[in-house]
Design a binder for these strands. Sequence first.
DNA 1: CGAAATTTTAGTACCTGGTACTAAAAATAG
DNA 2: CTATTTTTAGTACCAGGTACTAAAATTTCG
Lengths: 192, 192
Amino acid sequence: MVNRSLPKPLRLKKLSQQIKENPFLTDEELARGYRVSIQTIRLDRLELGIPELRERIKKYAEESYAQVKSLQGQEIIGNLLDLELEKSGLSLLEITEEMVFQKHRIARGHILFAQANSLAVALVDAEVALTGIARVSFQRPVRLGEKIVAKAVINSKRGNKYNISVTSRSENEVVFLGDFIIFAVEHKEGTR
Amino acid sequence: MVNRSLPKPLRLKKLSQQIKENPFLTDEELARGYRVSIQTIRLDRLELGIPELRERIKKYAEESYAQVKSLQGQEIIGNLLDLELEKSGLSLLEITEEMVFQKHRIARGHILFAQANSLAVALVDAEVALTGIARVSFQRPVRLGEKIVAKAVINSKRGNKYNISVTSRSENEVVFLGDFIIFAVEHKEGTR
DNA sequence: CGAAATTTTAGTACCTGGTACTAAAAATAG
DNA sequence: CTATTTTTAGTACCAGGTACTAAAATTTCG
């Protein structure tokens, strides 16, 4: 009890959390931290279904890599729910850990902007579509775990210039409004 | 020449590029791909200073992990160069791989917005500062590798409501202009 | 309290994907 | 042809395990 190890159920719980928080810890480090043998840590991991160090690191790296690659090719920030080119679209974005400030769990200003802007751009049927001007309004803070549904509608189109509005909601409450001027570009650069 | 391996200099070059593009390849897979022995691949990696598979994966995961953790605690998107609270600020953002579309290497709409908005928010001397309204204008597309310097200035302040302008430049050319209404919040939620 | 059950500890053989080293074979250059 | 470079191969060892066997220690329960 003095400096002895924790009871098993508590140790399992803490171990699970700790590894989740830091996947780079070796079994040896964990054994030292919990004052148990390395075999016990390994049995714990087996019971918790937590893979070994290298496997954890590999998975983390692969997911990270896949995300970067996927994001590069992906035009939409969030999941596209519906799209009618040259007309309207709908997308869903879940607010996750890396989107929020650690301090107060409120999403960063650009997250909702990103979702809305990328959806607006996606409505334009062109090889390349670039944003020229945006006017946006944040109605209330959005927090970790919220699911944001953005709806984009093309208001008007003159030549290669589109006027697009986006309304974003969380549980049917409006949290963000945006108006975008988007330009369809063919090959040469124009304003964005 | 028919199905034989490449000359060494060319193999070294291609190997370097391939591993950079995909750090998850084993020496065995590479050996098979280049039709040389595994020892040759290892000698090549030694000559090129490229670490082994597990080391590469670990480094990638650690950098990724560090970035996520750092971003959470970090208020500024980019590197803060100068800050005078309640007055003005300067930040630098380099446009990297994950910020651009794969297709045309142009940065996504929200990247410049994020830099500007986070700098504007940082000028406000409050526990929490949230964006209410933003009007932004993109002057030209920004590409992979460009270094963007954003300058934010507080134009006016009424109570807890700040009016802040941001001008972003690449090589002294204006690429982005933004006007933000930011609210200083104490504990209760207001508009953002 | 003692037996049964559970938990903890330890040891062995083997795995993956190497490094570091020695050395021979093959290819190339002058 | 000789010297040099490149390629191939083999051995011992490493890190951080897994899978298994088994003993020791602790806890539980009748």
